[in-house]
Structure formats: C-alpha cells, structure tokens
C-alpha cells in the first residue's frame, strides 16, 4: 500500500491549492451584486423561460451506449495483460467476444441509434 501514500499527499496538496485559489479571489475581489448582473447571460436580452427545459433524448442514448461499451472495455484490459499466457485460447475467446460486440454495434447502427440529424 505504500505506493498510495504519495498519491494521497498529492491529492491533499492539489485540493488545498484549489481551495486557496478560490478563497484568495474571494478575499481580493470586490463585489457589487445587482439583480441584472445576477441574471443568466443570454446575449444581453432578458432571460426567456427556465433552463431546466427538456433536451434531446439522444444524450441519454449516448450515455447508455457508453456504459455498455465501457464495461466491454473493462473486460478487455485484464485479457490484454494476460494475453501471452492465454495464447490461442485467449485469441479465440476475444474474437467471439468482439464479434458479439460488433453485432451489437451493427444493430445500433442500422436502428439509427448513432444518427444525429
């Protein structure tokens, strides 16, 4: 575990620096808040409607696809590290795995999940 001690030290040091930066600018800066200044920026016009409006469902779809493919990738990393020991068996296994993954990708592609219009 001794390798993690420097990491924790670094994390502490950086977080401390980030807090100091924010705090220092709070202390050094002036502040005059007005209602107009506090309004969200919309190119100089008064803000129209709320921000928490609906947005395209495509963004959810991308997040879902990301989860699927990211997990597949996590399976690949230990396989890659141990590949020389696994030999031909490992290659065939991963070939089948990537084939299934590829079929999924082709299905998504044909269903139009990857299209942005």
């Amino acid at each position: 575990m001794r390798e993690y001690i420097p990491l924790l030290m670094l994390m502490g040091f950086i977080v401390f620096n980030a807090i100091v930066m924010v705090a220092l600018s709070q202390i050094l800066s002036t502040r005059r808040r007005t209602a107009v200044k506090g309004a969200p920026y919309e190119s100089g016009m008064p803000a129209l409607g709320g921000t928490r409006a609906r947005f395209s469902v495509k963004f959810y779809l991308v997040a879902m696809l990301f989860i699927v493919f990211d997990i597949e990738m996590v399976f690949m990393i230990p396989w890659a590290v141990e590949f020389r020991q696994l030999g031909l068996f490992g290659l065939v296994e991963m070939g089948i795995f990537i084939l299934i993954l590829g079929v999924g990708l082709v299905y998504l592609w044909k269903r139009g999940a990857l299209e942005w219009d």
């Binding site: 600018s25 709070q26 800066s29 808040r33 506090g38 309004a39 969200p40 920026y41 921000t51």
Partner: peptide, 12 residues
C-alpha cells in the same frame, strides 16, 4: 488580474 476581478455568480 483574475484574482482581483469581481466574482459574478448568477442568482439562480
């Protein structure tokens, strides 16, 4: 300069 500039935080 960035340290001394005013911090604007939107009210919402």
């Amino acid at each position: 300069k960035n340290f001394t500039k005013e911090e604007v935080m939107p009210l919402q």
